[in-house]
């Protein structure tokens, strides 16, 4: 049984303006999936749908086989949720926020809580409103993982954090993976975090799933070819080559993304244009993201 399953999710905020138009994918136990997409692509909407905070207008979402709107308590108790715009009760002290969560989650692990308190060196007596952004997020993370959730939903968890705090986040997530086998669905604009953490990426674009692939297969199955500018090298000509899925005109060369091995891609370019001095480059996820999502707009 999937830990989380999105099936043909539709959601609009205003009539006629759909954020999600039929998104489907699922996570198996222990999977770590990075959710990618431009700002406003609907990542947060999807996370909020998974938490049962909002309802899809069409389609079914289930966590552990339960509907998050039907069994909100059962679902939320088994999920850890951290989001960029999450606001903790700011009138409470850190100590009290932790006590609050401890009382709400039956599976709370005090040893883990103490461990994380020590690691983050949180000022337990400080009010939430006096904490820095990074500290507040650390409190949120502590509260999200100390009940050893079966699923972590991290919505842009490192947004606005400094590299040290981001690393802390990453390491805590990895600790959860190692110790509990937690399934993680996270969205992030830090592609290096995605590369480190995710085993699989799902890219949401224009309301649908553009890519859903193992991260290594994604990179090995795609190649970026830089074709120097020449009169015959046009966008359309490149796109007409078999396997070419995106072209961007840059100052140094035309950047073409191919859905095939680099060698094949170079061969095809050579066949189309002859010897052009086309080069292949290994694609980091960040570039892939820009080439695919940025290139189509």
């Amino acid at each position: 049984m999937s830990i989380i399953e999105f099936n043909n999710i539709h959601r609009a905020y205003k009539r006629g303006i759909d954020v999600l138009r039929g998104v489907s994918f699922s996570l198996e136990k222990g999977e770590v999936v990075g959710l990618l997409g431009k700002n406003g692509a609907g990542k947060t909407t999807l996370m909020r749908i998974a938490m049962g905070m909002i309802e899809p207008q069409k389609g079914i979402v289930s966590l552990f086989g339960l509907g998050p709107r039907d069994e909100p308590i059962q679902v939320k108790r088994r999920v850890g949720y951290v989001s960029e715009d999450q606001i903790l009760p700011e009138f409470l002290r850190v100590r009290e926020v932790i006590q609050l969560h401890r009382g709400l989650f039956p599976t709370w692990d005090e040893a883990l809580e103490h461990d994380l308190c020590k690691r983050f060196s949180l000022p337990l007596n400080a009010k939430i409103r006096s904490l820095s952004k990074g500290q507040a997020r650390q409190v949120a993370l502590l509260c999200a993982v100390s009940h050893r959730p079966e699923l972590l939903l991290l919505d842009e968890p490192a947004g606005g954090l400094d590299p040290a705090a981001r690393r802390e986040f990453l390491e805590t997530s990895i600790q959860m993976l190692n110790e509990t086998g937690t399934t993680i669905l996270f969205s992030s604009h830090y592609m290096s975090d995605v590369e480190r953490l995710a085993g699989r990426v799902v890219m949401i674009h224009e309301g649908g799933v553009l890519i859903d692939s193992d991260i290594d297969l994604l990179r090995e199955g795609h190649s970026l070819v830089l074709v120097p500018h020449a009169p015959k090298v046009t966008r359309d000509a490149l796109l007409s080559i078999e396997g070419c899925i995106g072209v961007r005109d840059r100052s140094d060369a035309m950047h073409a993304v191919f859905r095939c091995q680099p060698r094949d891609a170079l061969d095809r370019v050579a066949r189309q244009f002859g010897s052009t001095g086309a080069r292949h480059r290994d694609v980091a996820l960040e570039e892939m993201f820009i080439e695919l999502v940025g290139g189509q707009s």
Partner: peptide, 23 residues
Amino acid sequence: PESSRATGAVDSTGSRSSPLLRT
């Protein structure tokens, strides 16, 4: 602030009212 950090633990007792009700 170190005095509270040093303990590194949140005691379960000693709070005046339930944090849930207060929240």
